[in-house]
C-alpha cells in the first residue's frame, strides 16, 4: 500500500512536470521545429544530414549513413553495450557443470527415432524455413544502405533463426550449430571488425572511423564509395555480435545458465 501511495506521488509529480513542458513544444509534425530545421543562427545538423550526407557517403538510406558513419562512434559502443550485456549475463547465470540438476537432454533426433511424431510437423517446417530466414537476414544486413535494415536488424533475425531451432528441437540442437565457445568468439570478432575499420583509418593518418581514407584498401573510386563500403563492413561486424549475443541470451536464460535442453 505504501509503495502504491509513493508511486502515485512520484507519477503525479513527474507527469505534471513533463506535461507542463509540453505546451512549450513546437507543434507535432512541424517541419520547421528546432529539432528538424535548427535554430536561427546555427547550422541544423538534421538538414545537413538530409542535404549533404548522400554527397558525403553515397548511401541513400540516411539512417544508415548517420548511424554507421557520422555517429559511428556511438554505434560502436552500442554494439559494446550488447556485448557487455551478453558478458554480464554469462557472468551472472552461467553454471559450469550440472550443479545438482539431472541431465534431461534427449535430442529431437532421439524422439524422432523413438516414434514421437508430435514434433515432426514443427521440426520439418523449421528445417525448411530456417534457411529462408537466414537468407533474408543476410539480405537485411547487406541491403541496409538502400532500404530499412542494417546490422542490428539483420543480426536479430539471424539470431532468431537459431532460437527457432532451439525452440523446435532443443537447445542442444542449436548449440551444435553455434556452440558456447563460438558465440563468445563471434561476438568479440564482430566488435573487432568494427574497431578494425576505425583503427585502419588511424594507421593511415586520419581520425578514428574516418572511412574516407580507406579508399586505397577498398579499391574504390573516391572517398565516398570507401565510406559506403566501410559502412557495409561495420554493419557485418555489428551483425556478428548481435547474432551471437541474441542467441546466447536466449540460451542462457532458457536453460538457467546450464546450456542443457532449455525450454
Amino acid at each position: 500500500m505504501l509503495s502504491k501511495i509513493f508511486a502515485s506521488i512520484a507519477v503525479a509529480i513527474t507527469g505534471s512536470i513533463l506535461l507542463y513542458g509540453v505546451s512549450d513544444f513546437p507543434a507535432f509534425g512541424d517541419p520547421n521545429s528546432p529539432a528538424s530545421a535548427g535554430v536561427p543562427g546555427s547550422e541544423s545538423v538534421s538538414l545537413y544530414f538530409i542535404e549533404e550526407s548522400y554527397k558525403d557517403t553515397k548511401v541513400p538510406n540516411l539512417v544508415t549513413s548517420v548511424l554507421a558513419d557520422y555517429r559511428g562512434y556511438d554505434t560502436m559502443f552500442e554494439t559494446v553495450v550488447i556485448f557487455a550485456a551478453g558478458m554480464a549475463i554469462f557472468a551472472i547465470l552461467r553454471v559450469v557443470g550440472n550443479d545438482g540438476e539431472e541431465k534431461r537432454a534427449t535430442s529431437l533426433e532421439d524422439s524422432f527415432t523413438n516414434g514421437d511424431h508430435s514434433r515432426i510437423i514443427v521440426g520439418t517446417t523449421v528445417r525448411i524455413v530456417v534457411p529462408v530466414i537466414q537468407l533474408f537476414a543476410l539480405y537485411v544486413i547487406a541491403h541496409g544502405h538502400h532500404s530499412p535494415g542494417g546490422g542490428f536488424q539483420g543480426g536479430v533475425i539471424l539470431g532468431a533463426s537459431f532460437i527457432i531451432i532451439a525452440l523446435s528441437e532443443n537447445l542442444n540442437a542449436a548449440l551444435r550449430r553455434l556452440s558456447e565457445q563460438n558465440y563468445v568468439r563471434l561476438a568479440a570478432i564482430g566488435i573487432l571488425i568494427y574497431a578494425a575499420f576505425g583503427v585502419m583509418a588511424q594507421i593511415l593518418g586520419k581520425n578514428f572511423l574516418d572511412y574516407g581514407v580507406l579508399e586505397p584498401l577498398l579499391f574504390t573510386d573516391g572517398p565516398e564509395m570507401a565510406r559506403s563500403h566501410s559502412m557495409l563492413g561495420v554493419e557485418v561486424g555489428v551483425a556478428f555480435t548481435v547474432t551471437a549475443i541474441m542467441f546466447a541470451i536466449y540460451a542462457n536464460l532458457s536453460s538457467r545458465g546450464q546450456l542443457e535442453k532449455g525450454l
Partner: peptide
C-alpha cells in the same frame, strides 16, 4: 528537406 523525416532521432532511438 521538408519531405524527408528527420533521420537523427531514428538513429538515436536505434
Amino acid at each position: 528537406p521538408d519531405l524527408i523525416a528527420n533521420p537523427l532521432p531514428h538513429v538515436l532511438m536505434l
